[in-house]
Amino acid sequence: MHGPASPGWLLVALCALTGGYCLLRMRSAVEEQRRAAGGEALMGFGMAAMAVPAATAAPPRWAWLAYAVVFGAAALRALWAARTSPHHLHHLHHLVGAVAMVYMAVVMATAPGGHGGSGSPLLTGTLLLYFAGYVLWAGVRLMPVAVSGSGRVAGGGTGWGDRPEVARACRLSMGIGMFAMLLTV
């Protein structure tokens, strides 16, 4: 993406660390957790790769097209999963994220020299509004939950990879990252 190098590298680190944690979450005993974590790991690492400052390493045009194909496939998978899953809203969020990645990759592929371009103001604005709303919603969901009479958080006792508040924090950080990336389009 185009933009200042320091924030770009911070975004790369945030997305890569989030993707790494999502890979660890794939070891969960809960199948739905593993499936969601796999999609989120792909998104985290893909965002990290796309956020590398162009001044450091400007990828060739074919790399942007490869991103578009990978995230196009991820969008189709999210759409397919949304139609049968009880967690269809989560899959629809993955669909929006994957479509945003395809959009940004296409904008970068069509830009002169791959150094950024201008996408559709309407589509960029719509995606920015969506991710701003998502970040606010996800942030509210991170507020402390009620504590049971025993002093343990309700629903406690899960493994560290199955902790919902950490998964929510990862989703929040990816939402912030997506918002930041869309600002550069």
Results as ranks from 00 to 15, higher is better:
residue 179 F to E: 02
residue 157 G to L: 09
residue 151 G to E: 02
residue 185 V to P: 00
residue 117 G to I: 05
residue 13 A to D: 00
residue 155 G to V: 15
residue 182 L to I: 08
residue 175 G to M: 05
residue 58 A to C: 13
residue 155 G to L: 11
residue 2 H to E: 10
residue 15 C to V: 03
residue 129 L to Q: 10
residue 72 G to L: 05
residue 94 H to I: 04
residue 184 T to M: 12
residue 1 M to H: 12
residue 100 A to T: 04
residue 50 M to Y: 08
residue 86 P to A: 11
residue 58 A to Y: 03
residue 142 L to M: 14
residue 154 A to T: 15
residue 132 A to Y: 03
residue 65 L to Y: 07
residue 174 M to G: 06
residue 172 L to A: 06
residue 122 L to K: 11
residue 52 V to A: 01
residue 132 A to R: 02
residue 32 E to S: 14
residue 70 V to D: 04
residue 9 W to E: 00
residue 97 G to M: 09
residue 26 M to L: 09
residue 39 G to C: 08
residue 35 R to E: 06
residue 34 R to Y: 01
residue 177 G to H: 07
residue 89 L to W: 14
residue 185 V to S: 03
residue 137 W to V: 03
residue 8 G to P: 07
residue 126 T to E: 02
residue 121 P to R: 11
residue 170 C to K: 00
residue 40 E to A: 13
residue 86 P to C: 09
residue 67 Y to N: 11
residue 116 G to Y: 10
residue 116 G to C: 11
residue 87 H to E: 11
residue 148 S to F: 05
residue 170 C to D: 04
residue 142 L to C: 04
residue 95 L to F: 12
residue 45 F to P: 00
residue 175 G to N: 04
residue 122 L to E: 14
residue 107 V to F: 06
residue 68 A to T: 02
residue 102 V to M: 09
residue 53 P to V: 11
residue 162 D to F: 09
residue 158 T to S: 03
residue 173 S to D: 08
residue 119 G to F: 12
residue 165 E to C: 08
residue 29 A to T: 10
residue 184 T to G: 01
residue 58 A to P: 13
residue 178 M to G: 04
residue 120 S to L: 01
residue 129 L to P: 02
residue 153 V to Q: 10
residue 30 V to I: 14
residue 86 P to D: 13
residue 37 A to G: 01
residue 50 M to A: 07
residue 104 M to C: 08
residue 52 V to S: 07
residue 63 A to N: 04
residue 154 A to P: 12
residue 43 M to D: 00
residue 30 V to Y: 03
residue 23 L to I: 14
residue 106 V to D: 00
residue 22 C to E: 01
residue 95 L to V: 08
residue 168 R to M: 10
residue 96 V to N: 04
residue 157 G to Q: 12
residue 61 R to K: 08
residue 117 G to F: 07
residue 100 A to F: 04
residue 96 V to T: 06
residue 155 G to F: 11
residue 125 G to K: 09
residue 131 F to I: 01
residue 45 F to E: 02
